[in-house]
Design a protein around this nucleic acid. Structure first.
Length: 310
DNA sequence: CCGAATACCTGTCTGC
DNA sequence: TGCAGACAGGTATTCG
């Protein structure tokens, strides 16, 4: 499921267990996810301190500091369609460099990567060595990990063309108007395009369009005035996208507080949607008596209300 | 250049 | 119960 709110929830869940801590051991249990894992993955990460865990679009970006040659690197992680992280208490023996022990009983099918983190001074993580083991599980293997130089990362092909962060200062009505100008593609497809705005996926595009009262089939260009300036509709859409994402992050936060320490699985949380996966259900817009319908646009399901989305 | 289709994988659900 | 087929929240690549 991971779209921006889910990835941000994962980031917030992992950050307290990872930031400022050494990676005592790392394991890649297979050579690839969607693409090959970084060469010598375990050796390159072992012993380094994870300074910060950030997010850009749907990517997690872990600043792991300098490598053996002093080159600052970032561990970039993407959850794809089915990736999640699980937190296990570290019950392993004290570390020797390059050594890694994890009880087989605690590994599950599709556990592809494990990072053993050192414990924190605050005692917030309570494995035998005071730390945790962070397990990446991904059945469909559409996820990915890269270890890239920090210098010039924004110009890397993965990030070069990604649009503004929707919760950041650059996602303005003017910017969205510019990005949609002249585009004949349906609004649904345009908002899924990561070049237009970062981090939206199928669910939150459906949700945002419903709340904004905009048809997913409307040509994207029709939100931009002939002058190239934003229309009132675009101002509304920018605001709606922010609201939908903020509410979802809030829902993810409460899931974290309620369940993360018990369940240990990050990446999926309960959230109720107004249109997504509600085909045949009643539209919840005030005063609307419509029914949620499903349609397929460029091979993906769109859920919407034809009565109130124009 | 743009937009649509395809490919990458496995698990789950539906209908016969 | 078994099984074929559809479908799943992402994105790089290919095709027209």
């Amino acid at each position: 499921m991971p779209e921006l709110p889910e990835v941000e929830t994962v980031r917030r869940g992992l950050a307290p267990l990872m930031e400022g801590r050494r990676i005592l051991a790392a394991v890649a249990r297979r050579p690839d996810l969607r693409w090959p894992l970084p060469e010598r993955f375990a050796e390159r990460l072992t012993g380094r301190t994870l300074r910060r865990l950030d997010r850009r679009a749907k990517y997690l970006m872990a600043d792991v500091g300098p490598d053996a040659n002093g080159v600052d690197e970032v561990l970039v992680m993407h959850l794809g369609m089915s990736g999640s992280f699980r937190i296990e208490p570290d019950t392993g023996p004290p570390e020797t460099p390059g050594d890694f022990h994890m009880p087989r009983s605690r590994l599950a099918a599709h556990d592809h990567v494990v990072l053993r983190m050192e414990g924190g001074a605050d005692g917030s993580a309570t494995g035998r060595t005071g730390g945790v083991e962070i397990v990446y599980n991904d059945p469909r293997r559409f996820g990915a990990m890269f270890l890239l130089p920090r210098e010039g990362l924004a110009a890397h092909p993965l990030f070069r063309d990604i649009g503004p962060e929707p919760l950041g200062p650059d996602f303005t009505p003017e910017a969205l108007a510019r990005a949609l100008a002249g585009r004949r593609t349906p609004l649904k497809a345009a908002l899924l395009d990561q070049k237009v705005v970062a981090g939206l996926g199928n669910i939150y595009v459906c949700e945002a369009l419903h709340r904004a009262g905009l048809s997913p089939e409307r040509a994207a260009s029709t939100l931009t005035a002939p002058t190239g300036h934003p229309t009132a509709l675009i101002v509304q859409l920018v605001e709606t996208i922010r609201t939908v994402l903020e509410e979802a992050i809030e829902a993810g936060g409460s899931t974290l507080r309620d369940h993360a320490q018990v369940d240990g699985t990050l990446g999926y949380f309960q959230h109720t949607f107004r249109v997504y996966d509600r085909e045949g259900g009643a539209c919840t817009s005030p005063g609307c008596r419509g029914t949620i319908a499903r349609l397929v646009q460029s091979g993906r399901s769109t859920f919407y209300c034809a009565a109130c989305q124009r």
